[in-house]
């Protein structure tokens, strides 16, 4: 599998899109660092961008890459390679290449700005972890959709819809439900639904660092336990780990029984 990962990675490394993606993050973070007065403000603004963009780019790249490489995938299928090797190899090759663009694009400007001598370094690391994990999750989800849809237009549409749901609609629905049922106890509902969406989950991990003072303002015992102790951070990391494995597991299942 390492072979496939390696070559997919080389292939993408030279594509202008991964360079473009890296440059985008470099420009954005440089601009944010210059415009805002400190690292923490820049990290907060960057979080907003990253939580939307990493899933979106992961989704789009995932779908495009799948369809673009489908002929070559068929060629590989005719070789004595296991399907798991081929698909996970391509998937991880793509994820690693995107993650590298992301990490370098964000990391270099922040390093120059003096990240290492700042106490915001831990916040920044969580941001990077979030970005990488979201990339893995959404490339995986996009791959699932593409595997299920041989029609490119349909596949692309569904993938974008999937992103839209996770990134925006889900939270909108959640907020509407919470406001609609505000007279009922909502602690469990809201916490559980939040951690089920990987984008929200990633956001919570950053909030646990940046907005803990506000999160502890609410009286609910469950919230207090979740945000006030290590429980929250452990549960979030565990779920995020599960989330980052889930899509590739599904990709594997679908790919091994699919006709090409």
């Amino acid at each position: 599998m390492l072979n496939i990962i390696r070559y997919t990675f080389y292939d993408l490394l030279r594509s202008r899109w991964s360079i473009f993606y890296m440059l985008f993050f470099m420009l954005t973070s440089t601009a944010l660092l210059f415009l805002s007065n400190d690292l923490s403000s820049a990290i907060i603004s960057l979080m907003n961008i990253l939580l939307i963009l990493a899933p979106l780019v992961g989704t789009i790249f995932g779908v495009i890459f799948y369809y673009n490489s489908s002929d070559f995938t068929e060629l590989l299928l005719a070789h004595p390679l296991k399907r798991s090797t081929i698909f996970l190899g391509q998937l991880y090759g793509l994820c690693i290449s995107l993650s590298l663009s992301l990490v370098l694009g964000l990391g270099i400007p922040f390093l120059f700005y003096g990240l290492l001598y700042s106490d915001a370094i831990f916040d920044f690391l969580i941001l990077l972890v979030d970005g990488v994990v979201l990339t893995f999750i959404f490339v995986g989800l996009a791959y699932i959709i593409a595997l299920k849809n041989d029609n490119k237009v349909k596949g692309f549409g569904y993938a974008l819809l999937m992103w839209l749901i996770f990134a925006i609609l889900y939270d909108g629905m959640l907020l509407v439900i919470m406001m609609q049922f505000q007279d009922y106890p909502l602690d469990t509902f809201s916490l559980v639904s939040t951690v089920l969406n990987p984008i929200d989950l990633s956001r919570i991990l950053i909030l646990l660092k940046l907005d803990i003072s506000a999160l502890l303002g609410y009286t609910g015992a469950l919230y207090q336990k979740f945000f006030g102790t290590v429980v929250g951070i452990s549960i979030s990391f565990t779920l995020l780990a599960i989330w980052s494995l889930l899509p590739s597991g599904l990709v594997l299942r679908i790919a091994t029984s699919k006709d090409f």
């Binding site: 907060i44 979080m47 907003n48 939580l51 939307i52 990134a167 925006i168 939270d171 959640l174 907020l175 919470m178 406001m179 505000q182 909502l186 602690d187 509902f189 809201s190 916490l191 939040t194 984008i199 929200d200 956001r203 919570i204 950053i206 909030l207 907005d211 506000a214 999160l215 303002g217 609410y218 009286t219 609910g220 919230y223």
Partner: peptide, 10 residues
């Protein structure tokens, strides 16, 4: 108050 979990979401 529970909606605080949506803080900073898009």
């Amino acid at each position: 108050p529970e909606s605080i979990v949506l803080l900073r979401s898009f």
